[in-house]
Simulated scan of single mutants.
Amino acid sequence: MKKFIGTGVALVTPFNKDTSVDTIALVNIVEHVIEGGIEYLVVLGTTAESAVLTTEEKQLVIDTVVKANNKRLPMILGIGGNNTAAVVDELKNTDLQDFDAVLSVSPYYNKPTQEGIYQHFKAVAEASPKPIVVYNVPGRTASNILPETIIRLANDFKNIIAVKEAAGDIVQAMRLLKDAPEDFLVISGDDMITLPMVNAGGAGVISVIGQGYAKEFSEMVRLGLAGNIKAANELHYQLMPAIDYIFEEGNPAGIKAVFEKLNLSTATVRLPLIEASEALKEKLHNFTDALYA
């Protein structure tokens, strides 16, 4: 699955000031990341605030991105949850013809055992007509998928092709990279340790900051994949402050503040999230001014 090597971005859902979906801004963001050199798009992931979108709004987001992309880049659709039967049903009843894979988050809140996680993804793999990218994000799910569980899934189900590893643990990532099957992709889900993971053999990233500073972040990843460590490190260190900033008050409040500065969308999020503070916006706006000075 070479189409998923490099930088993918977990697209936001931009909102108007009244919190309705801003499809014009979404089209502009898709153009921004494509022009910036991003390799693929991820639709309706966590960063899209999918938890607070209605079924109709989710379809509106899908239709808007599919049309805007116009088959230029590969696309992944987020379909996951903590009710295995509901996830299976959604996989069977969603039109996936425009998507190349599905990103499916580990069950949240329930706190399943490793065997429970395995059985969940077994059911997902057997139901999905598209390849699966397992999403491990223990900071949101309250349970960590251990490397041995990921490796077991990778070996047992050929359509489980990758993991988006967002534990923020470089040691865990290296254990995955050491033991994963040769054709299995270990994709960073943490912007700050993306380059170290790439340098250790990772396939790239599904990024948040990469949709804001698309040109710089995607070039950093390409340089890392090409073994140009010095040049990649220079970009990484340049972007480090902004990576801290965008997550300082939660995601996607930070990245939406960047989009506000770039005149791509408002900074509006939906409750229970709140918009980035003026202090954080000032830091991000100053960083952006300095980056493009």
Rank of each mutant, 00 (worst) to 15 (best):
F217K: 10
F121Y: 13
V65R: 10
N251D: 05
S128C: 12
A86I: 08
E115K: 15
A125V: 02
K92V: 04
Y245L: 14
N251C: 05
A10H: 05
H285V: 07
P129T: 15
T113C: 12
A253K: 07
V87P: 00
P14T: 08
K3A: 09
M174S: 10
E219V: 03
V137T: 11
N83S: 12
Y40T: 04
S265N: 11
D22H: 03
G224C: 10
E90P: 04
V137F: 04
T194E: 05
S218Q: 08
I193P: 00
T47P: 08
A257M: 07
I117M: 14
L96I: 10
S50T: 14
P138E: 06
G227R: 09
A125T: 05
V134W: 01
G6F: 02
K2C: 02
A85T: 13
N136F: 01
D63Y: 08
T268E: 13
L96Q: 11
Q172D: 04
A279T: 14
V163D: 00
N136L: 06
A127M: 04
K67E: 15
K261C: 08
G45C: 06
T113H: 07
Y213M: 10
M240L: 15
A166K: 09
L44R: 09
I187N: 02
Q211V: 03
E216F: 05
S143E: 07
V186W: 00
D100R: 13
K67G: 07
E278L: 12
I151K: 12
A226C: 06
P14F: 00
A154T: 13
D289C: 06
A68I: 09
A279L: 13
A48F: 00
L262V: 11
V33W: 01
A214W: 00
Y213S: 04
V21W: 02
A51Q: 11
E219M: 06
F287E: 02
L235A: 09
L96R: 15
N251F: 00
N28W: 01
V124R: 13
V102N: 11
L26E: 05
P147M: 03
L11K: 11
A68S: 15
A290S: 13
F184A: 06
Y292N: 14
D100E: 15
A85G: 09
E182Y: 03
I132R: 08
V102I: 15
N155C: 10
Q238Y: 00
L41A: 03
L177D: 08
E234H: 12
A166D: 10
Y292P: 03
L185Q: 05
A232I: 03
H236M: 06
E248C: 05
F157A: 06
A267T: 04
I79V: 14
T113K: 12
T64P: 02
A51M: 11
K158N: 14
E278C: 07
A232L: 05
L53E: 04
N82W: 02
L239V: 09
L73D: 05
T19F: 02
G204Q: 04
T84N: 14
G189Y: 02
A203R: 10
T47D: 04
L223Q: 08
A68K: 13
N159E: 02
E234Y: 07
F217S: 05
D22N: 14
P252F: 00
A25P: 06
K215D: 12
D183P: 10
E57M: 08
M1Q: 07
V171R: 10
N93M: 08
V163C: 03
P107A: 11
V9I: 13
K256R: 07
A68R: 12
A85D: 13
V9F: 03
V171N: 11
M240F: 12
N16G: 03
E90G: 04
